[in-house]
Design a protein around this nucleic acid. Structure first.
Lengths: 147, 147
DNA sequence: GTTTTAAATAATAATCATTCTCATTTACAT
DNA sequence: ATGTAAATGAGAATGATTATTATTTAAAAC
């Protein structure tokens, strides 16, 4: 878990560097994303902002999540069901473990993929920029739950 | 590249085993999926079937791709943009290399992820069922292309 | 502190992939 | 050949995301 204050500062810095306005909505969104507890989807982010911004529009959430993503300050995890999840706490490629029952997503600490990335670049002739590694399974909570 | 005839036979066998009817549309779809040249999306599959089935419905493609997926005969690759891609030739987890310019997807031959999967299971307490590993970059064709 | 103005927001319509509905057709068992 | 449940085709519905536009606002200039 990265330090969320540092992450927040980094996001605000990027807004300034690129000449974007520091709106209340953006700063609040940066706060939520800097923690990204549980890898929230857009609706979850939206709900977390409802307390401070009852009139905030969903479109504003989308716009600014994508803005932060364009700075490399947010990682987007797309899924076939269309409910994408976001991580502004660790916005760089890292493995995820995803429960197919409760949709929980956690970050395991495993060895790096650097060697494999180099091997893939050699074999394919691609310039590899990023990667994504997800493991899918059933978490221990769901395993012990009665059906 | 797996043998597409074997893949086709396997798909037809699954339909029979599960008591589904062998419609012309399903068999033609199995043919297309058994090759899965280029990891087609639904629209591409639909277009490939237009020659033989000009009146075929998009819904039929969706229905049956998902049916084959439920048998484990098709691998679905979801993407944030919603244009999911399908592989009926190698319907098991394997790494992909994806060009972010032309959206080409190829299958590199790299070592297995078995060790890493076991490590993740140990660390997280998940029962790991499957995984997905994608590398994103720019293919050599796009690299040499003039902007 | 006011004014100015380009950018951002809220509200909502539009879009696009996917899923659903239902009348019609068809595979296949009898 | 017939009956019937399943599958299809056509198009409507859904749900996430994106676009549009009138209004509001951050922040620069005065």
């Amino acid at each position: 878990m990265a330090d969320s204050n540092e992450r927040y500062e980094s996001m605000v810095r990027k807004l300034k560097e690129h000449g974007y306005k520091l709106t209340h909505q953006r700063l609040a969104l940066a706060r939520v994303l800097s923690v990204s507890e549980g890898h929230p989807d857009v609706e979850t982010i939206f709900l977390r902002l409802q307390d401070s911004f009852p009139t905030m529009s969903l479109a504003t959430v989308y716009r600014n999540v994508m803005l932060f993503k364009s700075f490399g300050e947010v990682l987007e995890l797309g899924f076939p069901n269309g409910r994408n999840r976001f991580d502004g706490n660790k916005p760089f490629p890292h493995p995820h473990v995803i429960c197919i029952r409760c949709q929980k997503i956690i970050d395991p600490d495993v060895g790096s993929l650097k060697d494999m990335t180099e091997e893939v670049a050699d074999i394919t002739g691609f310039v590899i920029l990023t990667h994504r590694l997800d493991f899918f399974g059933i978490c221990s909570d769901c395993m012990t739950e009665k059906v």
